[in-house]
Each structure stands twice: as C-alpha cells, then as structure tokens.
Design a binder for these strands. Structure first.
Length: 757
DNA sequence: AGCACGCCGACT
DNA sequence: GTCGGCGTGCTC
C-alpha cells in the first residue's frame, strides 16, 4: 500500500489495522487552529480545543470532545486562538451530523445565561437535550422480494404470508417491516417469519427524516368579525414583514384569540418562516390541537417534557432542519433550534407554568420576548387576564395591544355572584352553602351540568389528633400531609412522600382520634354524593387522571354529558368548552389569598376568572357562585362586578406604591443545606455582605423560604429589591463573590421570582 | 455533571 | 495490613 507525503506528525501507520490504542496527542502547535467549545455542563465558560487539520469547524457546529476521562458532546462557541495553556489542549474528536446551532440561538443562550446568572453550559443543555437527535439518523431495515427464492421445506404458505409477498410483488419500493405488515393487514410476526424463511431480502435504507406534514397556510382562515379581522390583519402584516414587535392580544375565551393568532402563523409560514407556539400545559390541550388541525389541515409538531426520547428526537431534528414549520410546546420548546424562526406566540401568557423554578430559573414568556428581539421577529402574547407585567409594558408603550371584544356581544363573564360564607353558612363539617346547594338542585333539574372548583387535591389538607393536637407533617418538608382517602394514604404534595394513614395518633397513641380538617376535592365529592345521590359525579384532579389519554377521556365524558357534577382542581380551569355546563361553584374562592404573596391577588383573580369562564359557553347562560369569607376583597369585588380594568388599576397602584414588580425588580437568593445551621450561617454571611447602597438596593431577609424544609433541605431566602433598570446581575455577582459558601450549602439565584411569602 | 484522587473506619 | 466510605476539586 503506497502512501505518499505523510508528514512526521502523522501516525506512523503502525496501529492502523489494530484495535485503537490510546491515541497519542500530537504535540501542541502554536499555529494550530483552535475553537472554543461550550459543553452542556455548569462550567462557566467554553473550553479550548485544537482542530485537527482534516476538520473544518465553524461556530454552531456540534462536536464531540474529550473532557478528562470521558467524551462529551458540545457546541463550537467561538473560533479564536486558544487561551488555555497549549499542553492542556486536546483535539476535537469529530463533528456530529446535526444541523449547526444558529447564531441567533447561540446569542439567546448567552443572553439567558447572563440574565439568570447560570453557567452558559447549563442553558445549552436545554437546547441539546436529546443527544440522539445529534447523531446520524439510524438507517433502517427494509425488505424486498428475494429473486428466485424458494420456500424451505416444511414452510406453510399461509394466506397472510401470501398477502405480504403480494404487496412486494407489485412493483414499488422496499418497505419496512411495519409498513409491510400494515399494507398486508397482518401482524409483524408474519413478516419476520418470511424473512427468516429466506423469502425476503433485507436491505438498509438510509434513514428517511420524519418530515411532518406541512400545514396548509394558503387556505383562507375562517371569517372573522370586524375587530378580529382588523387584529388578524395587523398581526399578518407584522409576521409577514418580520422585524421585532411585541403585541398583547387581549381577549376572553370565545373572542377568537386563537383564530386571530393562527392568521399570524399563516403569514409567517407564507413568508417562509418557522413559528413557535408556547402553551402552558401542552399535554392537556387536546382541543387546541383540533383547532390547529382544522385551520391548517395537519397537526403541528409537539414538544413537551413528557414525550418519549424517540418522539423528542424526531421533533428536534425536524425543528433544526427547518422541516417543522410550526412547533407547539411547553416552555422548554423555547430552546429548540429553529433556524428560520420568525414568529413566537405565547398563549395564556399570564400563566405561572411559564416560570421554571429548578435548574436554570427562567420565565419563558419574558425569555420568549428576548428571543424575538434578538431574532428580529414579532412575538404575540395572548391572554384574557394578562399579567400585570404585560399590562404595564403596554401602558409604557413597550408592547402594542390588540383588544378583541367578545364576538357575541355578551358580557365577558357569566353572571358572577358571591356567597358570603359568614352569613350563608354550610352545615358543620360540610362545605357547600345552602344557596349553592339550591343552585345545584336547580341546574340538575334543568338537565344541565355543574362544575365545583376547589384547587386542592385529596380528601383533607390537614389531619390532626383531637386528643393531643398533633398534626401529621411531612418529615422532609414544611408541609402538612394530605389525606388521600381513595388511596388510603397520606401524601406530601411537595416531595412525594407517602405513608399509610395511621390508626392511632403517632404522638399520643390514642386510637381513632385522628381528625380530617378542611376539604379537598375528594371530600367535596363525598358531600355531593350524599346530597345528590342520583347525580353522576366525577373528580378531575392531576392525581385521579393519569396521562393525557385519561384527560381526553374525562373531557369527552363531560362534554358528552355523561357526568352531571364534575369536581375539579386547576387542571379543569383551562380552555375546555362544555356546552351543557351552566353553573360553576367555587368552593373556596379565598384559597390563594392567604400568605401575603406579592401576586396572590393577581393570580387569584386570573384563576377565578378562568374558572368562571367555564360556565355558559354554549347556548345557555351561565352563572358562577363564589364562596368567600372576604366578599369585600378587591378580587371578589372585581369578579362580581366584571371590572377587570378596575382591579388591575388598583393592583398596579399598590405595587407602584411599594416599588414592587413590575415597578421595581426583585431577585431572590435561596440558601439551602441539609444542615440547618450551615444554611443559617451562610444566609447571615450573605446578609452582612449585602450591597449597602441603601438608596438603590434593599435587602430583605434572611427569612425561612416558603417551604423552609423541602425534600430534606433547609431553606432560607434573601430578597434583593432594586429599581427598574438597575444592574441587578452585576450587583448579585459581586455580592456572591464576597461570600465564602461552604460545600454543603447551595445558593440558588432566582431573578424575577414569581412566588414567595 | 461525572469521575478520580485522597484520606479515615471495619474487615480478611 | 487492605477495601471502601464519600468529601473536594478538576476537566480545555
């Protein structure tokens, strides 16, 4: 074998035909090309690697590199000369066949990392979360007829086997086992049997990329009303022209919000762009998919964390290659590589599910605006009850607003009435007030449906001993154990701890003295069964409904009126349309208001508004009864009076007065440790090192975090309050650098925390 | 995030 | 005398 022109630096060829020995690193060559590779680890900065001569690399390329003893996949982040000492440099091993990450996505990852004070590698990990998608798609097995093959002796030519051979006999491409089985109408074993008998010739087809069916954006959308049409036209123009803009699409369910933003999606597609739609709880929105399919004649690509690795691999590839023109997903879809991304929709933008609280803490709605800004394309935020942040951004002129009036000229909400529980009292140990019971009776008599809403799973939120007062508490968290009578167990809703319900008090040993306090949905179901024994009832909560299929089935039963009274938690608050549902009873409207959380009133208003919207969406008028001990509270007042704007004005006034978000900014430091005193010590040390420019910065705490003990870790919280526009990241970075954090203590940073006590 | 290296307790 | 617990520190 003649070899020519081999340089001294090349392998001498000795090992060429042997099992790979540990590859000797070529000596460092100062002139050799290097790249910076960002690895999906919390490393803080990209690492330098040498580029072998036969490899041509550019920023965005996905590569495999050695790191210590292992090999990792990373992304080329820069192509400057190496800064690391030359003797540390290792070679890039290979470039992966994945589509490179575009400059826009890379800039976005850097931006999110800087904003959230997270290592960029940790943010990158969210963008390349499916390693399988980065490799060459697997070629797959296919069969064609083996020419001249004869059945072996003893082979029975059954009808099914004959059909398979007939399918291949007509000309046509080789087919995969699954395709063959489907076309021949038999099981996969039949195909395998033929292959084993040597009648089929196996061959490997190059992988065909799962190309999603293209949405049809050319067919005009449904006829829209005047305001809807004008809004759609505005968004169409923006999506078609490109360029950054942020628009609040403000309208209740039934105002045609979805149809309007579908027009923006259609315009983006017509301009050759990809569109991304974020939804808060993707798995539960079967009705959304139906509407999308009705408008575009094909389902969208879906992305959420509960999908299988295979599903996510295919969607990731389709997004990265540009084959997926529309992706709809939960918050993590925001980090999908979409090279032609030209429009983002954030539906239900006020929803708390957009905030990610572990790992990189980010708010997907706000980061979506950043991605649109960096990518210079429009973003649409849609909601019937926008967040106060978004409202203020509209008022300040940072966001545009398109208001959609209700299409049918009816009031935005059904008739909402308050039930004053101080006067209209339920009997002892029961929870439905007489007037609500009466309304349920009337509704059932009219052949209509009732929804009772209580945002609390299980039977009772607290169990205590009547003899000694002992309360059953989670050993790992600062939380009561919730009795689940169906499962006959106690459960912690924060860490998943469960235990059987004890017969006697664990503290004083008295038998039969444990007492369930307060209601959960299971207990309301018990009361309903007692009061309305003939009604068909169903409890819908995240723990009674396992998986999207079960959810769809529950929704179908309710829609088809197989249920008279549905008792549900938050999972039932969203988007569903039940034509025969005319009465919504909110068992405890005050539930979210306790605890002094900054956003308690806002969130309660948004949730109850949404729940109220479930009543009377069909032909029939609906009514809503809110049981409350606080009928004079602004939230209750606004809901009963249908005065959304008044509520927001008051809420904005209070926040502005307190210089709280969105008028000021917050960052939280969560100090946590299994060792309580270590957590306390670190928290106090942070307090002492706090920025002391009192005019700009204000530090609150340390205080026990909302769950002072969570999953066995003791948590303390400090809050940094700053004026809008203050350099909060730089201040936090300096602050953290001044404090020595022991190794058994973690300090997590939460920029723009959403919930706290 | 892994993974190795390192420094103190219960075994053959 | 060794095996192995997991604390701590590095990886271009």
């Amino acid at each position: 074998m003649a070899r020519v022109n081999r340089s001294a630096a090349d392998s001498p060829g000795l090992f060429d035909d042997q099992a790979a020995p540990p590859s000797p690193q070529p000596p460092p060559s100062p002139g050799g090309r290097a790249v910076q590779v960002l690895l999906p680890l919390p490393l803080g900065e990209p690492y330098d690697y040498r580029v072998p001569a036969d490899l041509d690399l550019a920023p965005g390329d996905v590569v495999e590199v050695p790191l210590g003893p292992r090999q990792l996949i990373g992304v080329v982040w820069g192509d400057e000369p190496a800064r690391a000492p030359a003797k540390k440099l290792k070679n890039v091993l290979r470039r992966l066949p994945a589509s490179p990450l575009g400059a826009g996505l890379r800039a976005f990852i850097d931006w999110v990392a800087a904003y959230t004070l997270s290592p960029p590698g940790q943010v990158l990990r969210m963008a390349i979360s499916v390693p399988a998608a980065l490799e060459e798609p697997n070629s797959h097995l296919a069969y064609k007829l083996k020419p001249g093959a004869a059945p072996p002796p003893g082979f029975k030519m059954t009808e099914a086997r004959r059909r398979v051979l007939a399918v291949l006999d007509h000309d046509g491409p080789p087919r995969t086992p699954a395709e063959l089985a489907a076309e021949a109408g038999c099981g996969p074993t039949v195909v395998r049997g033929l292959a084993e008998a040597g009648l089929l010739e196996p061959l490997l087809l190059p992988a065909k990329l799962e190309t999603p069916p293209p949405p049809d954006f050319t067919t005009p959308g449904p006829a829209l009303g005047e305001a809807q049409g004008a809004a759609a036209e505005d968004l169409r123009r923006r999506a078609g022209e490109g360029g950054y803009s942020a628009t609040l699409l403000d309208g209740v369910t039934g105002s045609g919000k979805t149809e309007v933003y579908f027009e923006a999606v259609a315009a983006a597609l017509a301009a050759g762009k990809q569109a991304l739609v974020l939804l808060p709880e993707i798995a539960l929105s079967a009705q959304w998919f139906n509407r999308f399919a009705a408008r575009f004649g094909a389902p969208p690509c879906v992305w959420h964390s509960e999908m299988t690795v295979t599903q996510r691999r295919d969607v990731w590839r389709a997004a990265a290659s540009g084959a997926a023109s529309v992706v709809v997903g939960a918050r993590s879809a925001l980090f999908l590589p979409m090279p032609n991304l030209g429009l983002i929709i954030v539906d239900e933008e006020h929803d708390g599910a957009y905030k990610q609280d572990d790992g990189v803490t980010y708010h997907a709605r706000d980061m979506a605006v950043v991605r649109a800004h960096l990518g210079k394309f429009p973003i649409v935020l849609a909601s019937a009850t926008p967040s106060l942040e978004t409202q203020i951004n509209v008022e300040a002129g940072r966001y545009l607003r398109l208001h959609l009036p209700s299409r049918h000229g009816v009031a935005e909400l059904p008739d909402v009435k308050l039930i004053d529980l101080r006067v209209d009292r339920p009997p002892a140990r029961q929870w439905l007030a007489p007037s609500l019971r009466g309304a349920i009776t009337d509704t059932l008599a009219a052949g209509e449906q009732v929804m009772l809403f209580l945002n609390r799973r299980g039977y009772a939120p607290l169990t205590l001993c009547r003899t000694c007062g002992f309360r059953l508490q989670c050993p790992n968290c600062t939380a009561w154990l919730v009795e689940h009578r169906g499962a006959r167990r106690l459960q912690c809703h924060h860490c998943g701890y469960t235990a059987p319900l004890p017969e006697s008090c664990p503290s004083c040993g008295t038998e039969g003295s444990l007492h369930a306090c307060g209601p959960g949905v299971e207990r309301i179901a018990e009361e309903v069964a007692d009061l309305f024994p003939d009604a068909r009832t169903e409890v819908v909560a995240s723990d009674t409904i396992q998986g999207p299929a079960a959810m769809r089935e529950a929704i179908r039963r309710i829609t088809d009126h197989e249920v008279d009274i549905v008792i549900g938690t938050q999972v039932l608050a969203k988007g569903h349309h039940f034509p025969m549902l005319t009465l919504v009873g909110v068992v405890d409207a005050d539930l979210g208001l306790g605890g002094g959380d900054l956003r308690a009133a806002e969130r309660t208003y948004q949730l109850l508004h949404q729940v109220s919207g479930r009543a009377g969406r069909g032909e029939r008028a609906g009514r809503v009864l809110l049981q409350t001990f606080l009928p004079e509270h602004p939230v209750m007042h606004a809901l009963a009076a249908g005065d959304r704007d008044g509520f927001y004005e008051l809420e904005a006034e209070m926040r502005e007065e307190a210089a709280m978000p969105p008028f000021g900014r917050l960052a939280a430091l969560i100090v946590s440790s299994e060792d309580e005193s270590a957590a306390d010590k670190t928290a106090m040390a942070l307090r002492r090192a706090a920025p002391d420019d009192d005019d700009r910065w204000m530090v609150l705490g340390p205080a026990p975090a909302p769950l002072a003990l969570l999953r066995g870790r003791h948590r303390r919280r400090l809050l940094l309050k700053a004026p809008r526009g203050a350099p909060i990241q730089a201040t936090l970075r300096d602050w953290l650098a001044r404090v020595e954090v022991p190794h058994n203590v973690r300090v997590a940073v939460d920029i723009d925390p959403q919930s706290f006590l």
